[in-house]
Simulated scan of single mutants.
Amino acid sequence: MNSIEFAIKMELDGEKYYREQAENNQDNPLNIIFVFLADDEKGHAALLQNELKKISYDLADNQTLAETNNVFKERGDFKNKFEKIPNQLDVYRMALQMEKDSIELYQKFFTESTDEQTKKLFGYLVKQEENHFKIFDNLITLVERPEEWVEDAEFGVREEY
C-alpha cells in the first residue's frame, strides 16, 4: 500500500468516525460540527482518489473552521445541552489526537513526495487537518474552561474566550 492509498483509508476511517459522532450528537449543536468534519474527510478522500487515478482536481479552500466558529458563538444553548452528554471530552481528545496524527503523517508524505502535484496535495491536506485540529482544541478549551477558570479580580488579567 502506497502513501496515497494509506491516506485514502485514513480519510475514510475519519469520515466514519465523525459520522458516528454526529449520530451520537443528534440532539445538540455538535452534530453540525461532526457532519462538517465528516464531509471534509470524504472530500479529502476524493481528492486523494483523484490523485491516485491521475484525474485533475482543484484544491479549494473550505469554510469548515469559520462555520464551526459560528456554532460556538451560540454557546448559551450549547453549554446547557452539552452538560447532559457524558464522556464527550474523551471523544474530543481522541479526535484531537487523530487530527494531530494526520498532520504529522501528511507532513511526512509532503517531505517524501517527489511529484510536485502530490506534494501540493499533501501540503493542502496538512492545512485542512490543522483546521480540524483547531476545532477540537477550541472544543476542549470550551469544555474545560468552566471547571478551571476562576473569575476574580485578585487573580489578574485572563485571556478572553
Rank of each mutant, 00 (worst) to 15 (best):
F72Q: 00
L121S: 02
Q107I: 13
E99F: 01
K53L: 12
M98N: 13
V71T: 05
D39K: 11
N131V: 00
Y57D: 08
N138C: 01
M1Y: 06
L37N: 04
I140D: 00
E11L: 05
E67P: 00
E129C: 02
M98I: 07
E67L: 10
M1W: 04
L52A: 12
E160I: 11
S102L: 05
Q117H: 09
R19G: 00
F82V: 13
D58E: 14
A45K: 13
I33D: 02
I4G: 02
L52F: 10
Q117G: 03
D27Y: 01
E130F: 03
T68W: 08
F155G: 02
V126D: 14
I135Q: 03
D13C: 05
L48R: 04
L30H: 06
K108F: 06
N131Y: 01
L105D: 06
E159R: 14
E11Q: 05
R93P: 06
K84G: 12
Q26V: 02
T111N: 11
L65G: 02
P146M: 07
I135V: 14
Y18P: 00
E5K: 11
E130C: 02
V126S: 12
V126W: 13
Y18Q: 03
D137G: 04
Y161G: 15
A60Q: 12
A153E: 15
E23N: 07
A22Q: 06
E129H: 00
V71C: 01
F36G: 04
E129P: 01
N50L: 03
L52Q: 12
G156L: 12
E130A: 10
V157I: 15
K42P: 03
R19K: 10
F6H: 09
G156N: 14
F72G: 03
E159T: 11
L48Y: 02
S3C: 07
F122C: 03
S3N: 13
D77C: 03
E99I: 00
Q107H: 11
K16M: 06
S102Q: 09
V71P: 07
E83M: 14
R158C: 10
A66E: 14
R158S: 15
V91C: 05
E104L: 12
F110D: 05
K119C: 07
K53M: 09
M10A: 13
D27K: 04
F155V: 12
N138G: 04
